[in-house]
Design a protein around this nucleic acid. Structure first.
Length: 460
RNA sequence: GGCUCGAUGGCAGAGUGGUUAUGCAGCGGCCUGCAAAGCCGUGUACACCGGUUCGACUCCGGUUCGAGCCUCCA
């Protein structure tokens, strides 16, 4: 497959270091608050990539961290007068709940910073020993000047970075571009003992330590939002390369951000949509569909229109599956991925194109189901389901999808009225039949008469 | 100001140097007791100005507009 690499700015064939074992690291959340929809684009995008890689290679180790040491966490804990673990445990759980709503599969490893403090110390010591880091006033700083490759990922000239620096530079820095690896904690702040005094790690060293510990010095794929390219990934790259003397990442992948009304979703603008709130208004699958309806590198505008369109589009696909409910597919359908779908998803994860291939299958099924052999139906349904699985879509029961959140009592009620209407229709009592349909329509229930009886769905 | 990316039909969104993207919405038809679903058909789409080319939405240059980033503080 081909992947676009931020570092080379080109799309290239993906060649793993070890074809029998692919490695991928994606930056996870800092657990100090509920996550908004923008925070979930990376987990969903890289979940699709993980599903595809697992299908194409014998083994994938996918690591996505939890950042549970951070000054924002400290601030939240101090504000609420609780231990930081109280904050981090609560929001780690919330994050997992949200991922489940989006049908994001678990990663192989989910390391926490608090469990890797010793590894972080080792990385920092390694950098000091090799002359890439220095101690100053309780801080340990990375020396940007010690690494000529600094700026290659984010396409920045270190000299110009200095010129553009708009914050006061701390006096203890040798170079304004130097960034902190370890910083001291005041006695009332959370801190960990270290060779450089009690303190806490800087922003970037944690990912270096966790990636190296779980995936080795050089990893195949590193992903994240494109707001992380600089400084986070640039700094990770500098730390890892200097500490281990090896290339850090072969393929850097970055997703575009989600906009609300043409603006970045951010708390300061007050335009965030928390996933847990969104999930009360629509199925998680609709959210996931929206996230995959644009190419992962493109920005994505969130709007009510987009939500409705996604819902309607999924209705179309589930409509096909509902029509084929009585077609049994074999358990093992992994080899039913259509070539065109595979080609689309393998072309730098072109999910919009892949979705179009799904609609092509749907059209084929809708147009010619009556003349299809049983085997053809099995094949097309298996293709839809397996392609859907790669995207993390279409795995729900089709009837349940259309019934929405209506309960059994309501369903029984609807079925009773449908039976009454069937009798009215048999009696050619169109007036009564239409009365029943109108009555149900008032409750958002839409009827569809088909050759095998009447089915119903809840209107969006 | 610097770096990076983008501008496609009512909306969303792929793609390609000359051929239908796809979905949603709309319109016409078929089907239906009537609908719904589905099928068929349908719409001055490729920001602007130059250039390259037999031919550009697609390549090159410029303009305009938009988005993200510009750390160590928070």
């Amino acid at each position: 497959m081909k992947l676009y690499n931020t570092e080379t700015k080109t799309k290239a064939d993906f060649i793993p270091i070890d074809p029998n074992h692919v490695t991928m690291y994606v930056c996870g959340p800092t657990v100090y608050n509920y996550c908004h929809i923008g925070n979930f684009r990376p987990p969903v995008v890289f979940d699709v990539l993980a599903r595809v890689l697992r299908a194409k290679y014998p083994k994938l180790t996918y690591v996505r961290n939890i950042t549970d040491i951070d000054d924002k966490i400290n601030a939240a804990a101090a504000e609420q007068g609780v231990e930081i673990s109280h904050i981090t445990e609560k929001f780690t759980q919330a994050y997992h709940d949200d991922l489940a709503v989006l049908d994001v599969l678990p990663t192989d490893v989910e390391p926490k910073v608090t469990e890797h403090v010793a590894d972080i110390h080792a990385e920092i010591q390694s950098l000091i020993d090799q002359g890439h880091a220095y101690e100053a006033q309780g801080h340990v700083l990375f020396s940007v000047a010690s690494y000529p490759g600094y700026g290659e990922l984010s396409k920045r000239d270190p000299d110009e970075l200095l010129a553009g620096a708009r914050v006061d530079v701390a006096a203890y820095k040798r170079d304004p571009g130097d960034f902190v690896l370890w910083k001291p904690s005041a006695s009332d702040q959370p801190g960990w003992d270290s060779p450089w005094g009690r303190g806490r790690p800087g922003w970037h060293i944690e990912c270096t330590a966790m990636a190296a510990k779980h995936l080795g010095d050089t990893i195949d794929i590193h992903g994240g939002g494109n707001d992380l390219v600089f400084p986070h990934h640039e700094n990770e790259r500098a730390q890892s390369t200097c500490s281990h003397g090896a290339k850090f990442v072969n393929y850097w992948l970055h997703n575009g951000l989600i906009n609300m009304n043409q603006e970045k979703m951010s708390k300061s603008l007050g335009n965030v949509l928390l996933l847990k709130d969104l999930a009360t208004q629509m199925p998680g699958e609709v959210i996931r569909y929206i996230l995959l309806s644009a190419h992962y590198r493109a920005p994505l505008d969130w709007s009510d229109d987009v939500v409705q369109q996604a819902k309607n589009s999924l209705d179309r696909l589930y409509g096909v599956l509902r029509k084929m409910q009585d077609v049994d597919v074999p358990n093992d359908i992994a080899n039913h991925i259509p070539a065109a779908f595979d080609a689309a998803i393998s072309d730098d994860l072109n999910t919009p194109k892949a979705l179009a291939e799904l609609f092509a299958l749907a059209k084929q099924a809708n147009a010619s189901q009556a003349d299809m052999t049983h085997e053809e139906k099995v094949n097309i349904k298996a293709a839809l389901l397996q392609s859907g699985y790669w995207l993390g879509l279409l795995q729900a029961d089709p009837q349940a999808w259309f019934e929405g959140d209506s309960n059994d009592d309501q369903a029984a009620d609807i079925e009773r009225l449908i039976a009454e209407r069937a009798q009215a229709k048999a009696d050619k009592n169109w007036q009564r039949a239409d009365e029943i349909r109108d009555e149900l329509a008032a409750k958002k229930v839409v009827l569809e008469d088909g050759p095998s009886g009447t089915i119903w769905r809840i209107e969006n």
